[in-house]
């Protein structure tokens, strides 16, 4: 059974299509990554799934319930956890009071267990929270009623690296326990690390639906290399480098090949400094999926 089935889901705001005929399924018991640059329409899809906004056309089911059936969806949400991108907590309440509030609405069986992993300062008012603490409080409220399906919108935004790792390990454990995780992100490496399957959305359209192994081959790194002398582009640039920019002895590019191959290539030059980081997702997408490639589905 699919936890989420999305069929030709479209949401238009005037001329702009925030979601344009999006179609895919999320299987029960998988971690599904919903990947796209900021503004691609990820949050729109999620808010459609939760019934916060209505589709212009098309529909979807969440745990077997049609999102257009308002009453049935309300009941189904008892079994859904949601971590929004913007966390609208009651600012004047303490973290503990916020959790009490959500507990009264939907239960808190796993609260203590979650608070051992994620540690927002419960006795402080939410208005004093850092972004990371807010996110942790959001994670606890999303999972504390032990939902079968968790919908997470940029779940690690604002978390420090240690807590990000903890979050990744946690959702993997949830998946292994049979839960379904639907997870949006604009960070390619994060999705590559934890997801089983990935849907890629650009400008409201689903451009690809991939198994993670396929996506791993399509990775990319943003690289900046400082050489000892002016760059000889002909010798330096390989086919795996895209968007190459050279200024004097510095060269920036997005590398789409294997990391090991890149390092082997670089040692042949006199490198003074090198910086390898996550790429701009949109550059990578343009490279792999083109500017107007039709949706490829598997």
């Amino acid at each position: 059974m699919s936890a989420i089935e999305i069929a030709d889901l479209t949401k238009r705001y005037g001329e702009v299509a925030a979601n344009d005929g999006v179609t895919f399924d999320v299987e029960a018991g998988e971690i599904f990554g919903y990947l796209g640059p900021n503004g691609a329409g990820k949050t729109t899809t999620i808010r459609l799934l939760l019934g916060l906004i209505k589709p212009t056309s098309g529909t979807a089911t969440v745990l077997g319930t049609d999102i257009r059936d308002r009453r049935a969806l309300t009941e189904a949400k008892a079994n859904v956890g949601y971590l929004p991108d913007t966390l609208g907590f009651e600012e004047r309440l303490t973290g503990r009071q916020v959790l009490d509030y959500f507990a009264r609405m939907r239960g808190d069986r796993r609260r203590e267990e979650l608070l051992e992993l994620f540690t927002p300062p419960l006795d402080q008012r939410v208005e004093t929270y850092s972004a990371g603490n807010r996110r942790m409080l959001g994670i606890v409220q999303a999972f504390m009623h032990d939902p079968d399906l968790a919908i997470l919108d940029e779940p690690t935004a604002g978390l420090d690296p240690l807590k990000q790792d903890r979050m990744h390990a946690f959702i993997e454990a949830e998946r292994d326990a049979g839960k379904t995780i639907f997870f949006s992100s604009h960070v390619l490496s994060e999705v590559q690390r934890v997801c089983d399957r990935v849907g890629i959305i650009r400008e409201g359209k689903l451009v690809a639906l991939e198994h993670i192994d396929d996506l791993l081959e399509r990775g990319g790194k943003h690289v900046r290399v400082q050489l000892a002398e002016a760059v000889d582009e002909e010798r330096f640039v390989t086919a795996e480098m895209i968007d190459v920019e050279t200024v004097g002895s510095t060269v920036r590019f997005t590398y789409t090949g294997e990391s090991a191959a890149l390092l082997e290539h670089l040692v042949r030059f006199e490198v003074e400094d090198v910086d390898i980081g996550d790429p701009q997702l949109d550059d990578i997408f343009k490279h792999y999926y083109g500017d107007d490639s039709p949706a490829r589905e598997e």
Binding site: T74, E75, Y82, P84, T86, L87, G88, F89, F102
Partner: peptide
């Protein structure tokens, strides 16, 4: 105000009708 602050997103994510 709850729409503006996105508080309603969290509230309505639970099993409660509008």
């Amino acid at each position: 105000r709850d729409v503006r602050t996105r508080r309603l997103d969290l509230t309505l994510a639970g099993p409660v009708s509008r």
